[in-house]
Amino acid sequence: KVTYHVPNEEFARKLYKKAVDANLNVEIRVENGQFIIHIE
């Protein structure tokens, strides 16, 4: 399980798409202006 803290929405979207394309379980949320992405 990996967690990324991404300040940039564009990068967060790319990361999310890559994980989904790889059939990984992804959860994304915004906290204090940062995008928190959990990948399992």
Rank of each mutant, 00 (worst) to 15 (best):
N8Y: 09
I39D: 00
N23E: 05
I28V: 06
V30K: 08
N25P: 05
V30F: 14
K14H: 07
D21N: 07
H38L: 14
V6G: 12
Y4A: 03
K17M: 09
I28F: 10
I39H: 01
V26S: 01
E40V: 12
L24N: 01
N8L: 11
I28Q: 01
Y4C: 15
G33E: 03
R29V: 11
K14Q: 11
L15G: 01
I28L: 11
E31R: 08
V30Y: 14
R29C: 13
I37R: 00
F11R: 07
P7T: 15
I28N: 00
N32G: 09
L15C: 15
I36E: 03
E9V: 08
E40G: 11
E10G: 05
A12T: 04
E40Q: 11
V26R: 00
E27Y: 13
V20H: 06
T3K: 06
V2Y: 12
E27H: 10
A19G: 03
Y4M: 07
R13S: 03
E31S: 08
E27F: 13
L24S: 01
E9H: 05
Y16F: 09
V26Y: 02
K1G: 14
H38K: 10
F11S: 10
F11N: 05
K18M: 14
A12Q: 02
K17R: 10
I28G: 00
Y16E: 01
K17V: 06
K1N: 09
I36D: 01
Y4P: 02
L15Q: 02
N8R: 02
E27G: 04
A12W: 13
F35K: 00
A22E: 05
Q34V: 15
V6T: 15
E10Q: 07
L15E: 02
K14P: 01
K18F: 14
Q34T: 11
L15K: 02
A19D: 02
P7L: 14
Y16S: 01
Y4S: 02
L15S: 01
K18S: 09
A12Y: 08
N25Q: 12
Q34D: 04
N25M: 12
H38I: 15
A22G: 06
N32F: 10
L15P: 02
D21L: 13
I39E: 01
G33H: 03
L15I: 09
V6E: 03
N23D: 04
N23T: 06
K18N: 08
A22V: 06
Y16L: 07
I37E: 00
H5A: 10
E10A: 10
F11M: 14
Q34C: 15
F11G: 04
G33V: 08
I39V: 07
V26F: 06
K18G: 05
I36P: 00
P7H: 13
H5I: 15
N8K: 03
V2N: 05
Y16P: 00
Y16Q: 02
V30H: 08
V6F: 12
Q34L: 13
H5L: 12
V2C: 15
G33T: 03
V20M: 11
R29I: 13
K14L: 12
E31H: 09
E40Y: 15
P7K: 15
V2P: 04
P7W: 15
I37T: 00
I39T: 01
P7R: 14
V26H: 00
I39L: 04
V6Q: 03
R13W: 14
N23Q: 09
N25F: 12
N23Y: 14
E40D: 10
K17C: 13
E10C: 15
A19Y: 13
V20E: 04
K14V: 10
N32E: 05
N8Q: 04
K17G: 04
T3P: 04
D21I: 09
I39P: 00
Y16K: 02
E10R: 06
E31T: 07
R29Y: 12
H38D: 11
E10H: 07
K1F: 13
L24M: 06
E31I: 12
E40A: 09
T3L: 08
N8H: 05
N32M: 07
D21A: 13
Y4I: 13
K18Y: 13
E9S: 04
E10M: 06
F35D: 00
H5Q: 09
P7I: 14
F35E: 00
N32L: 07
F11P: 01
N25L: 12
L24D: 00
L24G: 01
D21Q: 12
G33C: 10
R29L: 10
A19K: 02
E40K: 10
Y16C: 11
L24H: 02
K17L: 09
K1T: 11
F11A: 14
E10V: 05
V2W: 14
K17A: 10
V26Q: 00
A22I: 11
I37Y: 01
I39R: 01
T3W: 11
T3G: 03
V20W: 06
G33K: 03
Y4W: 10
F11V: 13
V30P: 02
R13M: 13
N32H: 08
V20P: 01
R29T: 09
E9P: 04
H38C: 11
E31Y: 09
A22N: 07
A12R: 05
R13T: 04
F11Y: 12
I39N: 00
A19N: 02
H38R: 13
Q34N: 09
E31L: 11
E10W: 11
D21F: 10
V20R: 10
L15V: 06
V6N: 04
G33S: 03
K17T: 04
R13H: 05
F35C: 05
L24P: 01
A22D: 04
I36G: 01
A12K: 03
E40S: 14
F35L: 07
N25S: 11
K18H: 08
I28Y: 04
V26L: 02
A12M: 09
H5E: 06
L15T: 01
V20L: 14
I39A: 01
E31V: 12
H38E: 15
K1V: 11
A12H: 02
E10Y: 09
K18I: 13
I37Q: 00
I36W: 08
V26M: 03
E9A: 08
I28W: 07
N32S: 05
P7S: 14
I37F: 03
V30D: 02
N23W: 15
L24K: 03
Q34E: 10
V26C: 03
N8M: 10
E40H: 12
V6R: 02
K17N: 07
N23R: 09
A19P: 02
A19I: 10
E9W: 14
I28A: 01
P7E: 14
G33W: 14
E31G: 05
E9C: 15
V6L: 10
N23P: 02
N32Q: 05
R29D: 02
N32C: 14
L24A: 02
E27L: 09
F35W: 15
A22S: 07
F35Y: 11
Y16N: 01
E10L: 06
Q34W: 15
P7N: 14
H5K: 12
N8C: 15
H5F: 13
R13L: 12
N8D: 10
P7M: 14
D21M: 12
A12D: 01
L24W: 08
F35Q: 00
I37K: 00
E9T: 04
I36V: 10
V20S: 05
K14D: 07
A22T: 03
E31W: 11
N23K: 10
N8W: 13
V30E: 10
L24Q: 02
I36F: 10
L24I: 05
V2S: 06
G33Y: 07
A19V: 05
G33I: 07
N23M: 10
R13A: 05
I28H: 00
L15Y: 04
A12G: 02
H5N: 08
V6Y: 06
A22L: 13
E27K: 09
F35N: 00
V30I: 12
R29M: 08
N25T: 11
P7V: 14
K1Q: 08
A19C: 14
E27I: 11
A19S: 04
I28C: 15
V30W: 13
P7F: 15
D21P: 04
N32W: 10
I39S: 01
A22F: 12
H5T: 13
K17Y: 07
E27C: 11
Q34M: 15
D21H: 08
K1C: 15
V30M: 11
V26I: 06
K14Y: 14
E9L: 11
N25H: 14
I28D: 00
K18R: 10
N32Y: 07
E27M: 10
I39G: 01
V6A: 11
K18D: 08
K14T: 08
K17S: 05
H5R: 13
E9Q: 06
I37W: 02
G33A: 03
V30Q: 08
H5C: 15
